[in-house]
Structures are given as C-alpha cells and as structure tokens.
Amino acid sequence: MVVNNGGNLSTDYFIAYMNLVMKAKQCSVVCAKEDMLEKFFKGNPHHFGPVSNQSFAQALNEI
C-alpha cells in the first residue's frame, strides 16, 4: 500500500489496516502491532509524523 509521507493518517485507517494484517496473518493485535512497527513504520513509530503516531496509538487502544 502506498502512503503519502505528508498526510496525517487517521485512527480509522489504522484500525482497518491492523484488522487486515490480523486476518491475513491470522494473528493477535500484538503480532499486528509488531509487524506494522517493523514494516509499515520501518522501525520508527514517528516515520509518518506525530499525528499519525497518535492515531496508531489510539487504534491500538480501540482494538
């Protein structure tokens, strides 16, 4: 999935993305979080900025 580095990603975006990862890998939220931090964020949770990082954290709380 291509993501614009300048855009602020929403909580709903991360919830949908994490649900997709969990279904595809048949894994838990913890597994999806680790996978996204490694692959999506390239090891840096602030890769897409503070707003997207906060949305990711909120998505984790909601899931």
Rank of each mutant, 00 (worst) to 15 (best):
Y13P: 07
Y13F: 15
F14M: 10
F14Y: 15
I15A: 12
A16D: 11
A16R: 11
Y17N: 09
Y17M: 08
Y17C: 13
Y17R: 12
M18I: 14
N19Y: 13
N19W: 10
L20R: 14
V21P: 05
V21T: 10
V21A: 08
M22D: 04
M22Y: 00
K23E: 15
A24F: 05
A24E: 10
A24S: 11
K25I: 07
K25V: 09
K25W: 12
Q26I: 05
Q26N: 15
Q26Y: 11
Q26R: 15
C27A: 15
C27L: 05
C27I: 11
C27R: 08
S28F: 02
S28G: 13
S28W: 03
S28Y: 02
V29F: 01
V30E: 14
C31G: 04
C31Y: 13
A32L: 07
K33D: 08
K33G: 01
E34L: 15
E34D: 14
D35W: 07
D35E: 14
M36D: 01
M36L: 15
M36E: 05
M36C: 15
L37K: 08
L37G: 02
L37S: 00
L37D: 00
E38Q: 12
E38Y: 02
E38V: 08
K39E: 11
K39A: 06
K39F: 05
F40T: 07
F40V: 08
F40I: 02
K42E: 07
G43K: 03
N44P: 05
N44M: 00
P45Y: 03
P45W: 01
H47T: 03
F48M: 07
F48W: 01
F48I: 04
G49M: 11
G49C: 09
P50G: 06
V51D: 00
V51L: 07
S52M: 06
S52T: 06
Q54N: 04
S55D: 01
S55F: 02
F56T: 00
F56C: 02
F56D: 01
F56A: 03
F56R: 03
